[in-house]
Write a protein that binds this DNA or RNA. Structure first.
Lengths: 222, 222
DNA sequence: ACCTGAACACCGTTCAAGT
DNA sequence: ACCTGAACACCGTTCAAGT
């Protein structure tokens, strides 16, 4: 989606930088150094202007981030061949969203804004809704089902990416390691039993398993 | 959990502020104005010292936030009477965590650090693991099941709270409203059909429904 | 051991002025 | 219409010094 501003007039001073250029440069910074390092000031110097020149092409930093999300979704969300059966369609559409998000961890900062990430993602939402309805849910319950899938998907991405982010830039034992070290096997036997395998188990990608379980549960009652 | 530092010595200058006081004041700021408004500088002036005095009781701001989370979990997570049947136990433990988090939206900033929020929450994790195993899952699959429940729970909290946060401090039409306005009913019929009811549907609290569906799905294969 | 003051190296954004 | 410079009101944190 391009929510470009007013139609370009030929009057006045010719623009030296464009909104596209601003967004493209912001993307480069974020891809290289992470979203934390994207500041209006750095973006300006990287482009070769003053910070305030940016505000002519973008309302503020928040809008820049949303534009960045849109830009990414438009390029990363390629519509796949969907299977014919509705259950498979829901799974494939959700997995496609998940895959695009997983490849772009910085997105979590913006992601949580709301449930519809961008217009480019709407087609996927449509497939999920349609699949759920074809499986027998009412339209209203399909929306709730979609939301449940979205909670699960967003939660998986956010928890997973922020966990790995902290692990990398830290050499000391993680919070989790310190917590497990204090577990009393008499009081918390299951945790103590799992403590040694916890890191390996949580490193496994079980998104698809969880998604299937959730979907099965959503469809089971109907 | 109190990860208090070295044992208090009587030597040297007597402390004028304590770690407890720092955390308690930080909590007051966060409860009143949100986590964004918690800065080391404001915290210092609110206590009546200089910013740098804080760094003697807390390693840095990140550690302060984790301490804040611990502090909250210790006070908010009261262990409920759990039902005898294992499925009910899992539901009740997950719902208790969810309830505590929902009452404390600022926590999402810290929450996503990892999966075990604090030692106070471990008992609840234990109940979930134990319940899942009692329902027939292997210990490894129980960990995966717990993770799935955690993804869903964290995702619900994060999406819900950030969505309402943006709604309040903004009078213009939301991003979602703008997106729905552009939906083409021919291309995306299900979305167009749901557009009018979307806000009302997503305002409903369907966490427990989703949780039950997920749990049913997790248990179904075994 | 605990606290202070000054300073460093940053932020996002407004405002008034330039071309 | 588009861009600039200076300024405002902030940040987290380090460092050297005080008691």
């Amino acid at each position: 989606m391009s929510q470009s501003p007013a139609p370009r007039r030929t009057l006045g001073r010719p623009a030296r930088i464009s909104r596209e250029q601003v967004i493209a440069t912001a993307r480069r910074i974020v891809d290289a150094d992470g979203v934390d390092r994207l500041t209006m000031r750095r973006l300006a110097t990287e482009i070769g202007t003053t910070p305030m020149a940016l505000y002519h092409h973008v309302r503020n930093k928040d809008e820049l981030l949303v534009a960045l999300l849109d830009d990414y979704a438009e390029r990363a969300l390629r519509r796949p061949e969907l299977p014919g059966d509705p259950r498979g369609r829901v799974l494939a559409a959700a997995a496609a969203i998940h895959e695009a998000l997983a490849a772009c961890p910085w997105i979590t900062e913006v992601l949580t804004a709301d449930d519809l990430m961008s217009t480019s993602a709407l087609w996927f939402v449509e497939q999920i809704l349609d699949g759920l309805i074809a499986c027998g849910l009412t339209p209203d319950r399909a929306v709730h089902g979609y939301r449940a899938i979205w909670y699960f998907t967003a939660g998986e991405i956010i928890v997973r990416t922020t966990a790995t982010r902290r692990r990398t830039d830290d050499d000391r034992p993680t919070y989790r390691e310190r917590v497990f070290a204090d577990v009393d096997p008499d009081e918390l036997p299951r945790l103590a039993q799992a403590a040694g395998r916890w890191a390996a188990l949580t490193a496994e990608d079980t998104y698809l398993d969880g998604l299937q379980a959730l979907l099965d549960g959503l469809l089971a009652a109907h």
